[in-house]
Design a binder for these strands. Structure first.
Ligand SMILES: [Zn+2]
Ligand SMILES: [Zn+2]
Lengths: 491, 491
DNA sequence: TAATGGGTGCACT
DNA sequence: AAGTGCACCCATT
């Protein structure tokens, strides 16, 4: 409702605002925002926060909430430290989710401040896959020039989510040939994958393709965000509520809200499985796909089946009715730490870099490109690192107050202009510059070029290798050219 | 459960059975089937059927059920009379659906006997769009040669749903470029669109693209079918139950079950909106898309929003608990006609060929190709016909017994070999022969060729016309070639 | 609940 | 032929 309103509004003025990133936020007043001043939360150490503005409220930050916030901080740090988009970021100390419905809110705490609105792409009892919410492009965005400016979109974007040119090409390719329709603005490779390990009876969360094909933008007007915030309130997670209040405030006044971008991490990326293939060039068919992480090659054994989720939990983010319940359940206690000890234990008993499906991590590889560049294209000997929190964490103060740190994460960006050396190497169109932590991804650095080259190549290349048997289909000689090579990256 | 079992079973034996169409059915015994003999239902006119085998059962064919069956018969007749796949078939006298959940079961009664398993593609308070259920391809189907033979699929197919070659090409194209993933076996253009007219306070149903990219097969083992049949029982629609019992019986014993195919209806098809464009040839980029009906240009006004569906009706096809309720509600009466009069009135007050969103129909055009061929490519003067029941219907006996007619529709197929003249004209691969009522669709007659030509063309063509503004995208010179033309058929 | 990837029905937006 | 959020599936290893 106000969303569409906002769409129109912002899309009209978008072009005229130099600081477009925060325009939407400033155009729409936020309830509690403005009552806080930046950095008012003074809680540190073990002191419970006695923020004056919160006193009158019914406060109850669960121990769980506190811990979750702490874990969120760690997760955020892990993500920030990541260099290449196609590395896997294993979020290790994570809350002991009792139900899969608890995962999304936790992730939202992490990703909303980064300007990323996540939605569930797929879920079942053993897995939840998150992706960026599809942007709602406006009519204007459809007709925009290739670069600069931007329409209004829900998620990442207050700018076109993709270069319309490239987007259109994608769209066309898709439409020309049947498919479950997807808007061209919905091609972001970013994924967060939560999987439940039966063995460990524990959830694992991995961030994949930590790069975006669209600008990131924190949009407090989003319906999902409002739901999320309500959820926080219903859970009595006042730390988080306050933090997001401040975030809204900052967004409203155009203050920087995003985590500090890492200087220049662009460069050639390559998956370990494809090192035996010629490194992609701009016109290589491997180009667009080699940038994103794909399915691991080997897996362990399997079987299946859980039970109906339907009868289990009601959508947590929608039940405003639970507000009362929650409050009644644990009214005042601000800092009690009953479960905390238990959760703490669980966390500490999992080694820092190894845990859970570390195997998957190794298979997918995380490549340190600083090393990689030293030995350029020299065979399959990439330096493999584990991104999973090396120095951070360590500090797990008994309870809350991690929100301060978490907030700091996106509070003071020491912005460094992104290096474009490599992006121009593979692509000549930098109109879409990912404003994510890792600046430009090659996947998007040259969307149109990549699209065209790889798409046309796919017609032949992929067909060939995915169907090894000779194509003796009567007269339909849809030849797969002799230069076919392998890249079964997708799917 | 038994589905997967069946998959394996039938896919193994598929090739060895000459009468593959019915193999699945004969491999799986059906409960009540076999007790009926073909054509036992002797009810005609106003006589209520006193079929001996039904006497012991709890019989209650609602007046509603009876009427619905009658309407189903009419609908079937309309569909059978349709000649071209890309014509719109307006199903006119249809039940006065009180809820959109009533539509699917009614359509299932019509389409299951044709070997078509429908699923909802999209729905809201004002519209329900049905499509063919995606076939479940087996591993074998993935690696099959281009023609003949077939894996096991849920829906239409006990044969490959599409030429794997073409399917793979589609898949690849899609995968190369992100999209909501769709298996290559899920490309059937067949659609049934139900829309609710606020003005008339009535649902309208239109069959679009009445042709299939896969063989049609009635599969009584399908889970959906079982649900459907349970729904029939729950509603006390014993006429339908009996009819489908017989259908299962016929399928089981390899008796013909499909409606008589229409001799040879293949040929060039074209939408009225594109007559000012050169008719597509095999290598035309317009080719693949011009075959299917697309979104109507103008709609009659439809405002929207009923109310939340969620709280409204529970999935009708799943609620076995309603069995009791229903029976208690209207236990024995076989032929009472309380609502019938009302419904009858409603129907008769709507002219035969015009009704509801006839506008949409006219815009989309229904082309009589017999006429069309007489004046070959001569401009935009196609003969427009209204397929909607011309002679049939007329008879709306106060109640039931239409099941006999409905059954007859698929009982005695006078099969005529499909003409391939035109299909070979545009495509050299006839490995995919739609066994639908209308034989081959051009869309699928030469899948691979179409795919390649149109797709590669799309890269340029579509981009150009969908974004009229000059492409001044900085360095990304993803040129759209000068031969770009228009076909914004999709979207 | 093996682990882990993907397809798809279908209502919400 | 709305696009898509989400869960119920199934597939492969
Ligand atoms: Zn993204
Ligand atoms: Zn079909």
């Amino acid at each position: 409702m106000e969303e569409s309103q906002l769409d129109v509004f912002s899309s009209d003025l978008w072009r005229h605002s130099p600081s477009v990133d925060l325009f939407l936020a400033s155009a729409s007043p936020v309830s509690s925002a403005g009552t806080h001043t930046t950095g008012t939360t003074t809680t540190t150490g073990t002191t419970t926060h006695t923020d004056e503005s919160v006193d009158t409220q019914l406060r109850r930050s669960d121990d769980t909430a506190s811990l979750n916030n702490a874990l969120g901080e760690n997760a955020l740090e892990s993500i920030r430290r990541q260099r290449a988009q196609n590395k896997l970021i294993h979020l290790d100390p994570i809350p002991d989710f009792k139900d899969r419905s608890e995962i999304k809110p936790w992730l939202q705490k992490i990703f909303y401040p980064q300007g990323i609105e996540i939605v569930i792409e797929r879920s079942d009892s053993a897995k939840v896959v998150f992706k960026c919410k599809a942007s709602k492009r406006t009519k204007q965005s459809m007709w925009r020039k290739g670069s600069a400016g931007g329409p209004t979109s829900v998620n990442g974007g207050t700018e076109e989510a993709e270069t319309p040119l490239a987007a259109q090409a994608v769209k066309r390719l898709q439409q020309g040939k049947k498919k479950r329709s997807v808007s061209p603005f919905n091609t972001c490779p970013f994924r967060v994958r939560a999987t439940y390990s039966l063995k460990l009876k524990k959830w694992n969360i991995v961030v994949m393709n930590n790069g975006h094909s669209h600008p990131l933008k924190f949009n407090p007007e989003s319906e999902d965000y409002k739901k999320f915030k309500n959820t926080l309130r219903n859970e009595g997670d006042w730390d988080a509520v306050r933090k997001f209040d401040e975030l809204e405030y900052r967004a409203k006044f155009n203050l920087p809200t995003e985590p500090e971008p890492i200087p220049c991490d662009c460069g050639l990326t390559q998956e370990i499985e494809f090192f035996n293939i010629v490194l992609p060039t701009a016109n290589s068919t491997l180009n667009s796909s080699s940038e994103t992480i794909t399915k691991p090659r080997h897996k362990s054994e399997i079987s299946r089946k859980h039970k109906a989720y339907k009868e289990k939990v009601l959508n947590q983010t929608e039940s405003d009715t639970r507000f009362q319940q929650k409050l009644d359940f644990d009214p005042d206690s601000v800092m009690s730490t009953p479960n905390l000890a238990h959760l703490q234990h669980q966390i500490s008993e999992t080694p820092v870099t190894t845990q859970g499906n570390i195997n998957e991590q190794n298979l997918q590889e995380e490549i340190d490109f600083n090393n990689f560049f030293l030995k350029p294209t020299s065979g399959p000997t990439p330096h493999i690192i584990h991104e999973v929190k090396e120095d951070l964490n360590a500090n797990l103060p008994g309870h809350l107050d991690f929100d301060q740190n978490l907030l700091d994460a996106f509070t003071m960006p020491a912005w460094t202009p992104p290096c474009e050396a490599y992006s121009t190497e593979t692509g000549q169109d930098d109109s879409v510059r990912a404003t994510s932590i890792n600046s430009v991804t090659h996947y998007n650095s040259s969307p149109a070029t990549n699209l065209l080259s790889s798409d046309m190549g796919n017609i032949h290349l992929v067909d060939r290798q995915s169907r090894p048997q000779p194509i003796d289909n009567d007269t339909s000689n849809t030849q797969s050219p002799p230069w076919g090579s392998q890249h079964d990256i997708f799917r």
